[in-house]
Nucleic acid binder design. Structure first.
Length: 805
RNA sequence: GCCGGGGUGGCGGAAUCGGCAGACGCAGCGGACUUAAAAUCCGCUGGGGGCAUCCCCGUACGGGUUCAAGUCCCGUUCCCGGCACCA
């Protein structure tokens, strides 16, 4: 009679596994539904109750969809390459593969406790050669299309660890591992040409059912801006031209100087002899600073005059050319025309170095701006024949004028850069490239993949900024796949983002050894109908995955070009107001909760704790409240399970209303209020139960609770005499008829304040309702000596009598 | 600085088509059961006043629109998130 969750849960977990209940069937004939969790990195810390939230939400949703008649693909796997395993390997000398396998075993055990309907036959692991073989295959395809290329560029460099660092490993300008200030170092890097897809990545967002916040973040990250490229000749250097990008070609007449990024290739060429020493010193100083130090830590304007002058393309004026670190080499053209009157940064710089400031836009025709810098809209002034044009007209006219002289054209620039795709690290996918003196850079042919990660003695980078693989002679020395001559392997590996950029395509066909996936399987299951995970992946992972998908679409491997139709970001759980983390020591271990209340209670509490998309504070009291609710739920159903009574109207009305409310709350993803709906229904039924409960009520309880508390749902379903799984039943439907009342209680207001309540026929016409209201004894005193000037009737809600006098 | 989201009882939160604010849960108080406690069950529970069956106030703050505002508009303030010299 007593609810013993641990017993029930163990029983059903075992039975589900024996019966293969969650094996996805390709031939069921049901419509498909693909509900995906962002797969975890299997860290050594294990799961805490905060991690449970997203997994619970996605599992409830998956089970709900299954009950609605869908064939649901709800898989799980491991994003298993990554730095923590490698760092642990360096520290403890354990092979990352061993450590990763150990962590996966623990994670899998914990995930199985959730009672989720994962089809473990489809489990994938990005560090498995059978998987990364295909990650490498996709890289080769990108290389063949010119989307993967090598470029010498400055990367973050830690002088102490003697290694290149990924941007994510640089925290506040310092090395994450040792705290040394990070500098820059020129190195050859593999890059992916994601910028070629900028417009498509932008446009595709419009078709997605994603949180607006995430769409905004991606839009901002891509950072499309329209403007113009303009060419400036350099006095005394007929073979040198400075090309700038600007969004304000209308302010061209206000340009009073030029700025090149310190790394700009023209710097060395145009710097005059007397300025050279100063320029060289400044360039060197800039290179020592990391991008972070340069951009965030100190925004004070610094710079040096090169001694050279550029020529204004329309006026021929001589504009001094400076270098300054506020101009970034990797945005636009790495050079700007400075218009201090209409740009905050240029203004600050001009003031600091006493450069001329010339306003060319005023708030209205012929009027000077009241204050500088003036960045608002307006009308052109001091701009020769363009005076009087609006900013928008001026942009067009000046670009047109430049175009006719071959000195400029409209252009688009993006904030997003190409993707640095190489890491000088061990625990990642080897980049499948071979360098041959004879044939050059050659991709490893498909039939020779995977390029396996060899075992190494030491996981530390070599000290030259190369990956540990560079020290493995047997790995480096190979033969050219083209000419058979001696060749060297690329020793860099891919970043952790690589494997996760396409894993969702592997689940539909996880054991394919002929291709990353069959086109047919991918087209059947994708796009993902519901993708659930944390908002921390709003940009990088989700942008990379979209990019890979578009490339695979262009390769003809799939027929869709957006991977995730709907995205949901769950909020995190806090304890003491802070995000749960092992290092802060504020984690709640699910094992303890399960031992006390059971997995079902934890699942339901994860939902009840608050709106699923908002952060929520863990509360032990709240957890206990939910646990009590499940005990009452179980008791109510079990008490009546073997002696159901014939149905009656009161039960039918409650049941249909409950189904309507619950379904609506679930559909709108308000899981916390969905749980409330159960509590309300249970409270109502506890009164009704004195006269017995009917079979439909009891079965409705078992089926509807099943997505939330699956073990409990199964147990109750069995107690009601069923021999098949509750998940092979159907989500109940409701009849509108039961949602309507014959009679309703409405409020009677006088001047907007409630003075009485009354019951009237739901369909009562306005005249009747108003008459009843006016005649109500509690209302009379408020009408005395007054005139009713207006009568408002909202059927089913209220009557409002507006009185005067 | 720019962009976005949000301030509702002692607490987590309901109510977002403008229509009875505070569903549901927690905590608290009272009662039943018990030798007693725990568990369970029942009742009460925004603030103030009359302290009856009633009235006033109340959704961050100040205005406004409306018969009616947590909900719409304007301004202020605080908190959270994103971006941060992107030309």
């Amino acid at each position: 009679m007593d609810y013993r969750p641990q017993e029930i849960e163990q029983k059903w977990r075992k039975r589900w596994q024996e019966e293969g209940l969650y094996k996805v069937r390709e031939d069921s004939g049901k419509p498909k539904y693909y509900c995906l969790d962002m797969f975890p990195y299997p860290s050594g810390s294990g799961l805490h109750v905060g991690h449970w939230r997203g997994y619970t939400i996605s599992d409830v949703w998956s089970r709900y969809k299954r009950l609605q008649g869908y064939e649901v693909l709800h898989p799980m796997g491991w994003d298993a390459f990554g730095l923590p395993a490698e760092n642990a390997a360096i520290k403890e000398g354990i092979h990352p593969a061993i450590l990763t396998a150990r962590n996966i075993a623990n994670f899998k055990r914990q995930l199985q406790q959730i009672g989720a309907m994962y089809d473990w036959d489809r489990e994938i692991n990005t560090s498995d050669p059978e998987y990364y073989r295909w990650t490498q295959y996709i890289f080769v395809k990108m290389f063949e299309r010119g989307l993967a290329y090598r470029k010498k560029m400055p990367i973050n460099w830690c002088p102490s660890c003697k290694t290149g660092l990924a941007n994510e490993e640089v925290v506040n300008g310092e090395c994450e591992r040792c705290g040394t200030p990070v500098t820059k170092k020129e190195m050859d890097q593999w890059m992916l040409r994601i910028t070629a897809y900028a417009d498509r990545l932008l446009e595709g967002l419009e078709r997605l059912d994603w949180p607006e916040k995430v769409k905004r973040m991606q839009t901002a990250w891509i950072g499309r801006s329209e403007g113009a490229r303009i060419l400036f000749a350099v006095a005394g250097h007929p073979d040198a031209e400075i090309e700038v990008f600007t969004t304000r070609p209308d302010t061209l007449y206000g340009a009073t100087y030029m700025v090149l990024a310190p790394e700009h290739p023209l710097v060395a060429k145009i710097t005059t002899a007397e300025q050279r020493a100063e320029v060289d010193a400044y360039v060197e100083q800039t290179l020592r600073k990391s991008a972070i130090a340069r951009q965030i830590v100190d925004k004070t304007k610094t710079g040096v005059f090169t001694g050279a002058y550029a020529l204004h393309p329309l006026t021929g004026d001589r504009l001094p050319v400076w270098i300054a670190d506020y101009v970034l080499m990797d945005y636009g053209t790495g050079a700007i025309m400075a218009v201090p009157a209409h740009d905050d940064r240029d203004y600050e710089f001009a003031v600091a170095f006493s450069l001329p400031i010339k306003p060319v836009v005023g708030p209205e025709a012929g009027r000077e701006p009241d204050e500088l810098p003036y960045t608002g809209d307006g009308v052109l002034i001091h701009s020769d024949r363009f005076d009087g044009l609006s900013v928008a007209e001026g942009k067009k006219a000046i670009v047109e004028a430049l175009h006719q002289q071959g000195r400029g054209e409209a252009a688009v620039s993006y904030r997003m850069r190409d993707w640095v795709f190489a890491r000088q690290r061990y625990w990642g996918e080897p980049i499948p490239i071979v360098y041959c003196d004879h044939c050059g850079t050659v991709a490893v042919p498909e039939d020779q993949l995977p390029v396996r990660l060899p075992d190494v003695e030491r996981y530390e980078p070599t000290g030259t900024g190369e990956s540990p693989l560079a020290a493995i002679e047997s790995f480096v020395h190979t033969t050219c796949p083209k000419c058979g001559g001696p060749a060297r392997r690329e020793t860099d590996t891919m970043p952790q983002w690589a494997g996760s950029s396409w894993y969702f395509l592997r689940y539909p066909d996880p054991h394919n050894d002929q291709a990353p996936f069959s086109k047919e399987a991918a087209n059947r299951w994708l796009p993902v109908d519901m993708y659930i995970g944390g908002v921390e992946h709003a940009v990088l992972h989700l942008l990379y995955a979209r990019f890979f998908t578009k490339v695979l679409y262009d390769l003809g491997l799939i027929d869709f070009d957006e991977p995730f139709q709907r995205l949901f970001n769950q909020g995190m759980l806090t304890l003491g107001g802070a995000k749960m983390s092992k290092s802060k020591g504020n984690v709640v271990n699910p094992d303890d909760i399960i031992a006390e209340h059971g997995a079902d209670a934890l699942r339901v509490y994860e939902l009840f704790v608050g709106p699923p998309d908002e952060d929520a504070e863990w509360s032990t009291n709240g957890m206990e409240g939910v646990s009590r609710f499940l005990h009452r739920f179980y008791r109510l159903v079990v008490t009546h399970a073997d002696k159901p009574v014939p149905t009656r109207d009161s039960l039918e009305r409650l049941r249909h209303r409950f189904i309507a409310t619950l379904t609506e709350r679930l559909e709108s993803f308000r899981m916390n209020t969905a749980v409330s709906a159960f509590m309300e229904y249970l409270n109502e039924l506890s009164t009704e139960a004195e006269h017995g409960l009917d079979r439909a009520t009891l079965e409705t309880l078992a089926v509807t609770i099943a997505p939330f508390a699956p073990h409990l749902g199964e147990e109750l379903w069995e107690r009601l005499g069923h021999t098949t799984s509750v998940f092979d039943a159907s989500w109940p439907t409701y009849d509108e008829r039961w949602l309507r009342d014959e009679e309703v209680e409405i409020a009677i207001q006088v001047n907007g304040r409630v003075r009485a309540h009354t019951r009237i026929a739901a369909e009562a016409p306005q005249d009747d309702a108003v008459a009843v209201a006016r005649a109500h004894p509690d209302v009379q005193p408020w009408l005395e000596g007054k005139t009713v000037v207006k009568e408002i009737y909202v059927p089913g809600r209220l009557v409002n009598l507006v009185v005067k006098g």
